[in-house]
Simulated scan of single mutants.
Amino acid sequence: MLKLLSAVAFIIVLNLSAKAQTQDSTLKLSPVKTLSDIQYNALTKGNDLYEMDKVASQNNYPSSEKALKFKKEMDLSPTQVASLIKINTELKRKKIEMGNFIVTNETKLDALFRAKKINESDLIYYTNRYGLYQGELRNAILNAALNTYYLLSPGQIAKLNKLK
């Protein structure tokens, strides 16, 4: 019985140790207590944590990033590559901009609640802004997919779908 308990304890310690070592060391700690480190980093680095492109990708509207990744396999022209780079650069800029707005908005909400200075009009204002920022972010993501779709030929889109 003692050997069994020792073995179980050893396995638990190994499991906890492995989880501690696999934590992403590049994550910055979130200064906003209502955002996890993962959420904070995704928002400030322009990563789509919420899969806002899903409606486009599920309906064969490709992302500019994926198209650029497979540009050789898809035989993209230099003009297409330049256009995709432009789409992707603007999308990344917009994702970071909206992410920073969301972080700032969340910081303000937290400060108002913490100071017990929140009122109904402030609450409406900041929660509506949150929705506005998320909507603008999703629009930018879906617009980039739409523009990428128009830029590629049907054959290139079919080839990209096979490469995924």
Results as ranks from 00 to 15, higher is better:
residue 1 M to Q: 13
residue 2 L to C: 02
residue 2 L to A: 12
residue 4 L to G: 03
residue 4 L to P: 00
residue 6 S to A: 15
residue 8 V to C: 13
residue 9 A to F: 01
residue 11 I to R: 06
residue 12 I to V: 15
residue 12 I to L: 14
residue 15 N to G: 07
residue 15 N to T: 12
residue 18 A to G: 07
residue 23 Q to N: 09
residue 23 Q to K: 14
residue 23 Q to L: 15
residue 24 D to Y: 11
residue 27 L to V: 05
residue 32 V to T: 09
residue 33 K to D: 10
residue 34 T to S: 15
residue 36 S to H: 02
residue 37 D to Y: 10
residue 38 I to V: 15
residue 42 A to F: 00
residue 43 L to A: 04
residue 44 T to I: 09
residue 45 K to E: 09
residue 46 G to L: 01
residue 50 Y to M: 03
residue 50 Y to V: 01
residue 52 M to W: 00
residue 54 K to S: 03
residue 54 K to D: 01
residue 54 K to Q: 01
residue 55 V to K: 09
residue 58 Q to W: 11
residue 59 N to V: 04
residue 61 Y to I: 08
residue 62 P to Q: 03
residue 65 E to R: 14
residue 65 E to Y: 15
residue 67 A to S: 12
residue 67 A to M: 08
residue 68 L to H: 10
residue 69 K to P: 04
residue 69 K to G: 08
residue 69 K to R: 14
residue 70 F to T: 05
residue 71 K to W: 04
residue 72 K to Q: 13
residue 73 E to I: 10
residue 75 D to H: 13
residue 77 S to D: 04
residue 78 P to Q: 13
residue 81 V to S: 03
residue 81 V to C: 09
residue 84 L to S: 05
residue 88 N to M: 00
residue 89 T to M: 00
residue 91 L to F: 12
residue 92 K to V: 04
residue 96 I to E: 13
residue 97 E to T: 11
residue 97 E to A: 08
residue 98 M to L: 14
residue 98 M to T: 08
residue 98 M to K: 13
residue 99 G to K: 02
residue 100 N to K: 02
residue 102 I to F: 05
residue 103 V to S: 10
residue 104 T to F: 04
residue 105 N to C: 02
residue 105 N to E: 11
residue 106 E to R: 09
residue 107 T to G: 06
residue 108 K to D: 01
residue 108 K to E: 02
residue 108 K to T: 10
residue 110 D to R: 09
residue 112 L to Q: 02
residue 114 R to K: 12
residue 115 A to R: 15
residue 119 N to V: 01
residue 120 E to T: 15
residue 121 S to A: 13
residue 123 L to N: 13
residue 124 I to C: 00
residue 126 Y to E: 02
residue 126 Y to I: 00
residue 128 N to E: 13
residue 128 N to V: 01
residue 128 N to S: 10
residue 128 N to R: 08
residue 130 Y to A: 11
residue 132 L to H: 05
residue 135 G to D: 12
residue 136 E to V: 05
residue 136 E to Q: 14
residue 137 L to G: 07
residue 138 R to Q: 15
residue 138 R to I: 07
residue 138 R to P: 03
residue 144 A to R: 08
residue 148 T to L: 09
residue 150 Y to R: 12
residue 150 Y to W: 12
residue 151 L to S: 11
residue 155 G to N: 14
residue 156 Q to M: 03
residue 157 I to W: 06
residue 158 A to F: 05
residue 158 A to L: 08
residue 158 A to I: 03
residue 159 K to T: 11
residue 160 L to F: 05
residue 160 L to I: 04
residue 161 N to V: 00
residue 161 N to H: 03
residue 161 N to P: 02
residue 161 N to S: 09
residue 162 K to D: 11
residue 163 L to Q: 02
